[in-house]
């Protein structure tokens, strides 16, 4: 599913619908999307007030995610989400930790085709602050790094036999998070986002042993997303709930 740029509330509402669809029907969905304006997404458990410590993003729109981890400044990046269900997927551990590796491995392989060589963070985690405000200043073994800078990170929300995993690939530094380098800064590399959006899904499908077909939200999913946006993600009470 390839979506047009949208605001944070809509993007998070659609991602939650993909989790619900996976949980209820077993259907797996990969969504690639963009943001209509630079947006700060807070991790589910982060305190809203903590955004005050990050001056560069104070004026940006904000939304709270349903996934864990640190805050992400969504601007010059590729964003994906994946609604996955363990139904009909025997032999895969239900803790879904393996899904990080599957998605990131496919992305590494795809980027290698663009002469961008990323590595798993594995041994570089020590010394990083696990509670840093920005997700891309934290590091866990599955993250992908280039020159010690985190370039790809993902987070999950698990619900019984289903999971939502979403994540970002930093293409360029954003003026709203100037401390984070992107591929452009680290390798003088301009990756064609459209090309990546076209070719990565097929590589991921092969990695997962699945066939992917182009899709869009059903009328019912659109209705659910609209409702979730209205009662949850667009409401200040949700963004400020902690």
């Amino acid at each position: 599913m390839l979506d047009s740029p949208a605001d944070g509330a809509w993007n998070m509402a659609v991602d939650e619908v993909l989790l619900a669809t996976a949980a209820e029907t077993g259907q797996l969905t990969l969504r690639l999307y963009e943001w209509s304006q630079p947006t700060l997404s807070l991790g589910y458990f982060q305190a809203y007030e903590d955004r005050q410590q990050h001056a560069a993003s104070r004026k940006c729109a904000v939304v709270r995610r349903m996934t864990g981890g640190g805050a992400i400044l969504h601007d010059r990046e590729v964003t994906y989400s994946l609604g996955w269900s363990a139904q009909g997927q025997p032999g895969r551990r239900p803790d879904f930790a393996w899904l990080y590796d599957a998605v990131h491995d496919a992305l590494r392989a795809e980027l290698a085709g663009h002469d961008v060589i990323l590595q798993p963070a594995n041994g570089q985690v020590a010394g990083r602050d696990p509670r840093a405000f920005l997700c891309f200043q934290r590091l866990s073994p599955q993250d992908l790094v280039l020159d010690q800078a985190k370039i790809v990170g993902s987070a999950q929300r698990r619900r019984k036999s289903a999971v939502l995993q979403h994540g970002s690939l930093l293409l360029q530094t954003s003026s709203c998070a100037p401390e984070l380098p992107g591929l452009r800064q680290l390798q003088s590399k301009v990756v064609d986002i459209r090309l990546l959006q076209q070719s990565w899904p097929a590589r991921l499908a092969a990695r997962l042993g699945l066939e992917m077909v182009p899709a869009s939200l059903t009328d019912d999913e659109l209705r659910q997303a609209g409702e979730l946006m209205r009662i949850k993600y667009a409401r200040p009470a949700w963004s400020r709930r902690r």
Binding site: F45, M66, T67, G68, S140, Q156, R158, K160
Partner: peptide, 29 residues
């Protein structure tokens, strides 16, 4: 890394979420 617990006195239903737990980058009910 984080555990969200319910209040004493809350009514809970079998099969429904009563709390949330965050591990490194995953939130689970």
């Amino acid at each position: 890394v984080y555990l969200d617990l319910p209040e004493v006195g809350r009514t809970v239903t079998a099969g429904e979420s009563f709390g949330e737990i965050e591990s490194v980058k995953a939130v689970s009910d």
